[in-house]
Simulated scan of single mutants.
Amino acid sequence: MQYEGVLNKMHTELLNPIQYYLVFDQAFIHLNQVIKKNIEIQHIGYQCLNCKKEKKIFRQGFCYDCFMKSPAAGDWIMRPELSTAHLGIADRDLVYEQKVQLQPHIVYLAVASDLKIGVTRKTQVPTRWIDQGASFAIAVSEVPNRYLAGVTEVALKKHYTDKTNWRKMLQNQILDVDLNAAVKEVEPLLPAEIIPYYQQTNHEIFQLNYPVEKYPTTLNSLNLEKNPTFSGKLIGIKGQYLLFENGTVFNVRSYEGYKVHLNIL
């Protein structure tokens, strides 16, 4: 089976295990069904996810011009404490920023490798946790906008990491954490204005299981710029990574906007 299209992050469905789909304009691949099969990936070009022009990708699936101008690539995306839509102040496009920032957000604890703190829109639960390869996650506080989520995250980053060790995550080296106890330990660390939201939040533990036949013991990250053609046997999927039998791992999200030809044998 042969496919051609522009890479975007894999779509997911919360089942046991997680179901993964690679979606192109004219077709999609249910990736769970091709585990144990050989896949050939060939990099054949670029297409910016924003302007759709065939320009080299700079970051996050955008060409340089779009990354510098699009409201979807503003600094507040990575640093939610910089959000200003609640004040009626635009960064790049106030209408877009109000739509995204002025909605419920979740501050959470997740275990993908170590215990980490993070922020996501409520509508992205549990998608955000799946994309990070979290095995367990729990909401700390639901707040009404992105700014308050960012303020909370900044306070908690003094005590928790906000990064996932992708190597540990892909080798399934998961810290053993009592999330019920961990979320209780968070309360005295919260800003005073966040505590009422924390007390009203449902602290339910999510457990996420991934379609992995065998976790790799050694890892080699596929770089399509250096190696535009790769072939290997798919043995699992976790986070936004494809795992191959020879230890090669491919971060699909890192190559958003790359045009590829796929051959499934």
Rank of each mutant, 00 (worst) to 15 (best):
L94C: 03
V119N: 03
I264Q: 00
F136H: 10
E256R: 15
V107T: 11
D25E: 15
P104E: 12
L224V: 12
I29M: 06
A90R: 04
C51W: 01
E256V: 04
Y46R: 08
T229Q: 15
K163E: 13
E204R: 12
D65M: 05
M1W: 02
L94G: 03
E153N: 05
V119S: 08
F244A: 08
F250G: 00
V151W: 01
C66K: 07
I18A: 06
Q42P: 01
Y255C: 02
A139D: 00
K168H: 14
A182S: 13
D25Q: 12
G239E: 01
H261L: 14
C48F: 03
F206K: 06
Y147M: 07
F67A: 04
H105N: 10
Y147F: 13
P228G: 04
I174Y: 00
E213I: 11
L243Q: 03
T12L: 02
F244P: 10
K116E: 03
A73S: 14
A155Q: 10
P126R: 09
Q2S: 15
N50I: 14
Q124M: 11
E54M: 06
H43L: 08
H105T: 11
V154D: 03
T229G: 07
D178S: 09
F206V: 11
G239F: 03
D131F: 06
Y64K: 15
K122D: 02
D25G: 11
P196W: 12
I89D: 00
F24R: 03
P126L: 09
G236P: 06
T152V: 08
L208V: 14
Y21V: 09
E4R: 15
F136Q: 04
H30K: 11
I130G: 12
T84N: 09
Q60W: 14
E142N: 12
L208F: 10
R128M: 03
Y108H: 07
Q132F: 05
D176Y: 00
Y21H: 12
T127D: 08
H261M: 12
N145M: 11
L190S: 03
T201Y: 09
G5C: 09
V125M: 13
G61M: 01
N202K: 15
P80V: 13
N38C: 13
K184V: 12
S231A: 15
K214Y: 06
N8F: 00
N8P: 07
D178T: 03
M68C: 05
Y255W: 14
T84M: 11
V34M: 06
M68F: 08
Q101A: 13
V95N: 15
N50P: 00
E245T: 11
N251Q: 11
Y46L: 14
G239Y: 00
Y241Q: 05
Y20K: 06
Q101P: 04
F62C: 02
A27H: 08
V107S: 03
C48M: 14
V177F: 01
G150A: 13
N209H: 14
P191Q: 07
K36T: 13
D65N: 10
T248N: 11
V100N: 13
T120C: 10
I57N: 02
I194T: 14
E4W: 07
K116A: 01
A110T: 06
I205D: 07
Q60P: 07
S83M: 01
D178Y: 02
R253L: 04
G88T: 10
I264A: 02
F62R: 10
I174V: 12
K9Y: 02
V95H: 14
P211D: 02
K116T: 04
T123G: 06
E245P: 10
P228N: 10
R128Y: 03
R92H: 08
H30T: 05
